[in-house]
Simulated scan of single mutants.
Amino acid sequence: MARLDTLQSRLQQYVDCEAAILGGAQEYNIGSRRLRRGDLAEIASTIKYLEKEIAAEESRVAGGGRNRVIGVIPRDL
């Protein structure tokens, strides 16, 4: 459960960062210094990655992962 919580927390941070950049906070000046925040394309790709990781982790926790093994006994009738 801790990994899922961590992934969800990171996703929320990236979504907040994306919203800040879209709101015009990508570049700003403090005195004579010009500061720039993260790259929007990189943030968007990280959000997609985290969403996939969260889905995989939720599936794993629920026991329905795609690598689930079910015992099958072949029979020749």
Rank of each mutant, 00 (worst) to 15 (best):
M1Y: 00
M1C: 08
A2C: 05
R3M: 11
R3N: 13
R3K: 14
L4C: 09
D5L: 07
D5F: 00
T6M: 03
L7Y: 01
Q8S: 12
S9N: 10
S9Q: 11
L11I: 13
Q13D: 12
Q13T: 12
V15Q: 15
V15Y: 13
C17H: 13
C17A: 15
C17D: 12
C17F: 09
A19Q: 15
A19K: 15
I21V: 14
L22P: 02
L22W: 10
G24D: 13
Q26E: 15
E27G: 08
I30P: 03
G31L: 02
S32K: 12
S32W: 03
S32C: 03
S32E: 12
S32M: 04
S32R: 09
R33E: 10
L35D: 02
R36G: 04
R36V: 15
D39F: 12
L40Y: 05
E42G: 13
E42P: 00
E42A: 11
I43V: 12
A44K: 13
S45K: 12
T46A: 04
T46E: 10
I47Q: 07
Y49N: 10
Y49F: 04
L50V: 06
E51F: 01
E51R: 13
E53Q: 11
E53T: 02
E53P: 00
I54H: 05
A55S: 12
A55W: 03
E57N: 03
S59P: 00
S59I: 00
V61D: 01
A62K: 01
G63Y: 02
G65T: 00
R66S: 14
N67R: 05
R68F: 03
R68E: 01
V69F: 01
V69E: 03
I70V: 09
G71R: 08
R75I: 11
D76M: 12
L77T: 12
L77C: 05
L77W: 06
